[in-house]
Structure formats: structure tokens, C-alpha cells
Amino acid sequence: MTLDGRRLAPVLLYPFALALSLTGCGPAGAPGGAPGASGAPPEVGVVTIAARPTTLVTELPGRTSPYRIAEVRPQVGGIIEARLFEEGGDVTAGQVLYQLDAALYQAAYDSAEAALARSRAALERARLKAARYADLLTADAVSQEDHDDAQAALKEAIATVAVDEAALATARINLAYTRVTSPIDGRVGRSVVTQGALVTANQSLALVTVRQLDPIYVDITQSSAQLLRLRQALDDGRLSRPEGEQPRVRLILEDGSEYPLAGRLAFSEVTVDPGTGAVTMRATFPNPDHLLLPGMFVRALVEEGVREQAILVPQQGVRHDRRGLPTALVVDAAGQVVKRTLTVDRAIDGQWLIDAGLENGDRVIVEGVQKARAGAEVRAVEIDSPAPAGD
């Protein structure tokens, strides 16, 4: 039993000796003796920055409002005989909407017309008499007093005719006011009165409201801070805008779809709302199909201007450090990684617009960032970059 144990011991120790000898024969310089470690730099995907003109757009909330609005009220009192329009339909300027009972106004017009005819006849008689007295005065056939009375009567008759002409014009206007018309082209709303209702002149309650919807206004609110930054960018040349041309505006509707027609910014308020710190701007949009209705909430995409040398980098190439500052890893000409701290303006179609920190021609790491460290050597492989907005 002892003899067999001595014979088995070398056999059991042989595999351990062989393993130790193989370990000692590994390639020199391999860490931990691991076979096949070549030490090649890691491969990363980069995008080469190419500055190009880019149109900058800001998204702002807005609400639609009619281009023109008219609240129709009667200018004379009376009973409504007929409503002459379809609610919700389109009307034109001057179209009759309501017909009032015109009997009293027609009678007043006829009376004024008759009074004018009477005063004109009296004027003709006074003119003839004044002419005869003028001839008789030269022949000393009438006294100077009679002549003067005839001239005064003539002037009085002329004044009476003028008064009656004004009365007839007033009666004609009041008679015309019995036909209540639309002052503008537009779409008419719901009528608040029916046939047989009594209305009064210049009453506070409007009979109906007419709104012009083509074109249509969109009122946009922008913070005063945004407005100041935009003006500074235009003043120092970072943004350019064609002279005399108002910025173009596009709309995103409530369902997320884009309105097919573009508008133009019309004007901006000259005061800031002290409650909200916002400035109201107004844009004008064509609305031939009446797709936009008053009161709709929309998002307006306002073109601020063109940045001629915009630096855009894919968002996956920008990270934030422990202080929250945006950074990017750049591969320099020697193939080494350099960390850059950035100043970011805004996001544009999946890319960041960079104000500072990157230059034209920089190679930014967008893939394999976890394999790259500042100061390390890497092998850069160019990958496709999405085109900036506005191309």
C-alpha cells in the first residue's frame, strides 16, 4: 500500500508542473500573461463639423383671431320683418341681413319730400317778387323798405329750402337703415333675434356678428427676454434677415399637423405685459378654406433669421459633466481625444446648435464614447451626419 502511494505521487504532480511551465512561456509584455493582447487603440465613430447657413426657428404659443369683426346693431328702432341670411354662411359687404318695418320711416320720408317741394315753391315766389321789387325800386315805384323786405323773404325762403333738404336726407337715411346690412365681407354667426322682435337704435345687444376669416390673424406671445436676445443677435451680426421683409411663420395645429400655408409677421406690440412679461406679436395667414377658426390654439414656428456659419452637432455627441456643463470629445490631428466644454443654444432636428466650444472641421465622437478618454489615442472612423435644418 505504501509502495503504490509512492508510485502515484509523481503522476499526480506532473500536470501541475506542466501548467506552470506553460505559464512561464507566455509572450513577453502581455499583462497578466494573457495571450493575444495587441494594444491597438479603440475605434470610435466621429462626425466632422461643417459650418453652413441655417435658418433658426423659434416655437411660440399663439391663438387665432378674426382679421376683421363687426357686431351688427340696428341704427333705427322697429319690428324685424325678416331675416335675410343663413346662419353660419358667408356674406358680403352691403348685403341685407334684416329688414325692419319701414312704414313709419317711409311716411316720414314722404312728408319731408312734400315739405321740400312746398319750400321750393315758396322760394321761387320769393325770388320773383324780389326781382320785381328791384326793378320797381329803380323807377321809384316802391319804397326802399318794401324792397328790403322782399330781399329778406328771398333769403328766408332759401334757408327754408336748405332745412327741408336736410330733413329729407335724414328721412332717406332712416328709411335706408330699416335694411340692416353687413359692413364687411365675412362669415355670419348665430342670430340672437327672430322675426317679430322689437329692436332699438344703437342697442347694446348685437343682432349678429360677422367675422372676416380670410386672411386671419394669429396672436403670438414671446417673452421680453427672448425678444432682447433676438435683437442682440441681429445687431451683432450672428443672425441676418432680408431688409424690409417680415419673418415667415408656420403653424402647428392642435392635432399636431402642420398648416399648409405660411404666413408673415405683421407687427409687434410696443409694450410688455407687466403680468406675464410677454410681448404680443401678430401674424397674418391666408385662410381660403376657413380651416383656421377664431379662438384656436396653435404653435407658431417663427423664423428668426439665418445664421451663416452655424455649428451643429448630433445630440449623441454631447454629454454633461458633473457640474451639468455640456461637453464633447474631439479627436485632434494626432488621433488623441480632447475634451471640450460647450455653449449650447438650442436643439434643431436632433442636433445641438453650438455657440462656443467647437469649430469648423472638428471631429466629434458620436459612437464609442464609452471607449474614449481625454488624452487617450483612438482610431477615428467617419460616419454619416444628418443635414442641418434649413438645407
Rank of each mutant, 00 (worst) to 15 (best):
129 K>N: 14
91 V>I: 11
105 Y>S: 11
70 A>C: 04
89 G>K: 04
350 G>A: 07
181 T>E: 12
50 A>I: 06
289 D>H: 07
16 F>I: 15
130 A>G: 13
374 A>S: 14
202 N>Q: 11
370 Q>E: 11
281 M>V: 01
39 G>M: 10
315 Q>C: 01
15 P>C: 07
379 R>K: 09
218 V>I: 05
336 Q>Y: 00
126 A>N: 08
177 Y>G: 07
53 P>T: 01
53 P>C: 02
40 A>S: 15
198 L>Q: 10
173 I>S: 07
48 T>D: 01
217 Y>A: 01
341 T>G: 15
134 A>Y: 13
362 D>E: 08
360 N>C: 02
340 R>N: 09
188 V>I: 15
69 I>H: 03
278 A>R: 02
371 K>E: 10
62 G>I: 01
11 V>K: 09
275 G>M: 10
243 E>C: 08
336 Q>N: 02
286 P>M: 00
89 G>S: 15
384 D>L: 09
83 R>Q: 13
376 A>R: 12
313 V>L: 05
224 S>F: 08
180 V>F: 02
366 V>N: 00
387 A>C: 02
294 P>A: 03
147 H>Y: 14
67 Y>F: 10
264 R>P: 06
56 L>C: 01
147 H>N: 08
324 G>M: 05
166 A>H: 13
312 L>C: 09
178 T>Y: 12
365 I>A: 00
229 R>D: 08
84 L>I: 08
203 Q>A: 06
132 R>P: 02
64 T>F: 00
52 R>T: 05
155 K>C: 00
21 S>F: 15
373 R>C: 02
216 I>Q: 00
380 A>H: 00
312 L>W: 04
21 S>T: 12
280 T>R: 14
385 S>R: 10
125 R>C: 01
125 R>D: 12
251 L>V: 14
141 A>D: 06
252 I>S: 15
14 Y>P: 00
296 M>Y: 12
377 E>C: 07
245 E>K: 10
240 S>C: 08
387 A>H: 04
189 G>H: 05
293 L>C: 07
216 I>L: 02
179 R>T: 11
103 A>R: 09
379 R>P: 02
137 L>N: 11
224 S>A: 09
89 G>I: 13
370 Q>K: 06
10 P>S: 10
50 A>M: 03
99 Q>H: 06
18 L>P: 10
232 Q>A: 13
368 G>P: 02
258 E>T: 11
86 E>M: 11
14 Y>E: 05
